[in-house]
Design a protein around this nucleic acid. Structure first.
Lengths: 182, 182, 182, 182
DNA sequence: AGTTAAGCGAGACGGTACGTCGTGTCTTGTG
DNA sequence: CACAAGACACGACGTACCGTCTCGCTTAACT
């Protein structure tokens, strides 16, 4: 069921999926699907939860470097056209469906744990100011990727990833104290 | 026609709109609409082009302050639930429709002109480094808003807007030369 | 189980009944019902067998009067909208289901015993000709009721009942010999 | 559409018909069917209206003979298993659907015109008493056929038809005046 | 001025997917 | 060990939009 949906996401993308199709492929009745998920969107969230493994958290000793590596890895994720079409669809659907909204929030929350952990470590170690706003930073990092992918149409090369992380967490290169103090 | 669509966007949101409904409201036949727009999405882009006036570009003399004001103004934009549901829908639709993709790109490009101008001015004046990556910065600013609104579910207060712009363009408060030089 | 079905027939009529509903009401699992009856129709036949008591056979000494009384009593039976919807449903279902057909035939046969007895008595006493076709007469009597109720939409008053029986078994009132002789 | 439905009635009978099937066979969308008929039952009534031509009215000069001929012709109609399953289904469905009820009434009314005309002629000519209850007689005649076909399970031979009509309109064989006068 | 052409409203149409319901079978867990 | 509880495959239901299409009617331009 989830597996069939996952396969279909890969084959025809979010737009090509219908409940009838999933049911047929999974050898399952539509009613059975609806018994578990309220919509194909919630089903697809389940797909992501199960089939998209979280990015590993690097620990190089430097926040700036950790963030950079994380960002580069993330950029690669967005390469696959088909699969990265899923998220925009879910986001749009969540605008009209409260329960989907909740499910998506929960999912995105869980997916942010890696980058949040990296940043928290930075604060702990003193590499980032104590009042560093992790929420906002995460929004900026992931938002930049999303926006670039969906709106700007720009590339998502490793270089771009690096530049984004550089703005987010300025490299302490020449022992720049300006950030830490404030 | 566009006016009727605009009214409907306000009343029932993107999800509640159908071509039949627009046609009926505009006192127009569906065929006539299709003669001008390929889909309701392209029609709605037209709506935005006509009815969403661009944010004014502040010019306070300081990039940091300009960006801050711009961000705060933008944050207010995202307040209206109904209307800000439109963009995600268009973004999702653009994933499957090349021509819509183009129309949306064109639109978003034109909407970025204000913030790009602000940043370009900053570079010209030397407040920002000569190699400041405006593309990336714009992605981070707008992406942060989008992501926060759609995924994080966080608030979009003036305070948050200020913090975002602070990360993007560190205030030169105490004549900090570190950013400029590099 | 049968009792629950009977109650439901009274409440929601044949159309509103489903096996799930009967099961729930009877506090029984569907499987248990299917173990005993092949369909809800056969279950309902059981209901009729148990809960619809046969019309009493009058014996006034005159066939014509007996038939009249029987017909009037029968007419009252058809008054209840809800309950008399059951039979048409069963009849229709029996067209496609051989075993149901048999069950229904058996039931209707048993229900005709009263009127057949009345007519047989008439023949025995010589009030009806020896070659009187009881089968046909029964069909005409019951058929007239059924048809009137279901197709003509006419009323089923005592008066109508009387007129039907009068045609079937002409009253020997004024020593009319025409029927007997032939 | 109606033609496709007619063909299907012949092939799979009333029970085997579904709106999806009719739509597919007619090369038409379900919505189009529903635009014209509220249910498959009303569609089938249309089928009967168009494809079942009315029985011709015999005029032999004698009511008794006219009725006999009509009855015999009618009996042949009921021969085809498949097709005569349709009516019971419609009758049952009409019990739960007011508008179908009306449509069916209208149809059956129009189908009775032949036999009614025959009987009216009999009254006009004085072969039947002036107060002869045509409504009741029609119910008895058609009802007998219906009942025999659906409930009794008896045959519908020409002989049976003749016997039914004999009871309904006693042959005036030996110039029996008893009926006419009254 | 009369005729013709274009443009449009109205809305029917073939399709596709929806989400729900009922059936009859089959499995699981409990008393 | 039987049975309630209920999950399940199947298939029909009736609805909603989509995008295309054919009708007439209007209005304008061109005879």
């Amino acid at each position: 069921m989830v597996a069939a949906a996952a396969r279909l996401v890969g084959e025809v993308g979010m737009a090509g999926i219908s409940m009838d199709l999933v049911a047929q492929r999974a050898g399952v009745s539509k009613a059975t699907i609806y018994r578990r998920w309220a919509s194909k969107e919630e089903l697809v969230i389940e797909v992501m939860r199960r089939f998209v493994e979280p990015t590993a958290a690097p620990d190089t000793g430097s926040v700036a470097e950790d963030v950079r590596q994380f960002a580069v890895a993330l950029a690669q994720r967005f390469a696959h056209q088909r699969k990265s079409d899923v998220l925009p669809h879910l986001v749009a659907a969540a605008c009209y469906d409260e329960s989907l909204r909740a499910a998506l929030d929960h999912y995105s929350r869980s997916r942010q744990s890696t980058i949040r952990e990296i940043l928290r470590r930075g604060v702990r170690r003193g590499e980032l100011p104590a009042d560093y706003d992790i929420d906002v930073a995460v929004d900026m990092l992931l938002g930049a990727f999303l926006y670039r992918r969906l709106m700007s149409g720009g590339s998502l090369s490793a270089d771009v990833a690096a530049r984004i992380s550089a703005i987010l967490v300025p490299a302490p290169s020449t022992a720049d104290p300006s950030v830490r103090r404030r």
